[in-house]
Design a protein around this nucleic acid. Structure first.
Lengths: 192, 192
DNA sequence: GCGCATTGTGCAACAAGTTGCATAATGACG
DNA sequence: CGTCATTATGCAACTTGTTGCACAATGCGC
């Protein structure tokens, strides 16, 4: 699985404590492999026990005390090997597409509002990616790692662009999705 | 979660046994919510116990004996309610993007071959979707459910198109990904 | 020095998904 | 009739991911 490799990557970029990792998983790395602090702590324990990372000597092992980790050679080798490993794209599991499919049999009541909500979310995520691109990848610099990281970011950009395009098209093409904006609390027209 | 709703949708489209569902989850529904027979049998049990589906009377409850299920009113209501429920897009967890990010720190050895392999897989999936589109959605017919199902299929088409575009661009733009095709068994140049 | 928010680590229980295997009926082959 | 492939259902154990909470240190206001 990928979580240990996500952690190794993050630690190679910069040795960190569990909480620092958690925060970085809420931005950067986490855009492509999200995780909670729970999983991260658990996985850090496993990686330490298997000799792929170690706590920096400076850090005491007391509870509530910061503990920084760094990657050991074994961890780096594991990560490098994993990169070349054949692994098929995971089968899609998307609740929104599924809901639309369900709407085809039981009616699309309320689905249009959800689509518009998702559209807004994807637009704002796209904006964030574009801000990051502007900040971190100005046209000139082209070190190898920078280019690879830029391509990853473009993956995010392209993905959001795909969703925005699909949602927009769906809303434009499909009359049954064009209901009012979720009509909170409004009493049912006939039985009030 | 979505598996029970995926099953309800499938059963509304057509009452089925566990194995039939499993097979349909390998095509159609499964393109957007994949699942194994294990999960499906387990979930069928739960749905039956909670009164959302029932076994058709004709089917005996013996092991190794086919058992067909149909959706009860409670199940249909549950499904209709779920459609309107606000649920954010799930955070992305994509191993390929992660691997590319890892490659930025430990080297892209073997990654190019993986990208090309994925590119081929996405191309073939796209072809399949286009075949289905041609077969099931000729330009004329426009019943409501048909249009919704068509939009879902277009979701798949657009998603594959996004991947193909991103992979193609990555391979074109990034020299370090342009290695030979995986160079199996070839001894290391300097230390043979 | 005491209360309190913040930072930080972690356990426990649960939910969802995967893997491997067991078991039963059924029909075809010889 | 016996064996064997196929269809079909299902248990058990495991891995991965989530949720809720407990507990320890640290620094700040008073």
């Amino acid at each position: 699985m990928s979580l240990p490799h996500a952690i190794l990557t993050a630690l190679l970029e910069k040795p960190s404590s569990g909480l620092e990792l958690t925060r970085r998983f809420d931005r950067s790395i986490g855009y492509f492999w999200s995780s909670t602090h729970q999983q991260i702590y658990r996985e850090l324990g496993k990686l330490e026990r298997s000799g792929q990372i170690r706590a920096l000597p400076s850090a005491q092992p007391a509870r509530g005390q910061k503990k920084e980790y760094e990657v050991l050679p074994a961890g780096r080798e594991e990560l490098a090997a994993w990169i070349a490993l054949p692994e098929d794209p995971r089968p899609v599991r998307d609740p929104l597409l599924l809901r639309m499919r369900a709407a085809a049999v039981v009616g699309a009541e309320g689905l249009g509002a959800e689509l518009r909500r998702h559209l807004a979310l994807h637009r704002s995520q796209l904006e964030e990616y574009l801000r990051i691109e502007e900040r971190d990848f100005p046209p000139e610099r082209t070190a190898d790692e920078d280019r690879l990281r830029h391509i990853v970011l473009r993956g995010g950009i392209d993905m959001e662009t795909f969703w925005i395009g699909w949602l927009t098209r769906a809303l434009a093409d499909e009359p049954v999705l064009r209901e009012g904006p979720a009509a909170l609390d409004e009493p049912a027209p006939a039985e009030g």
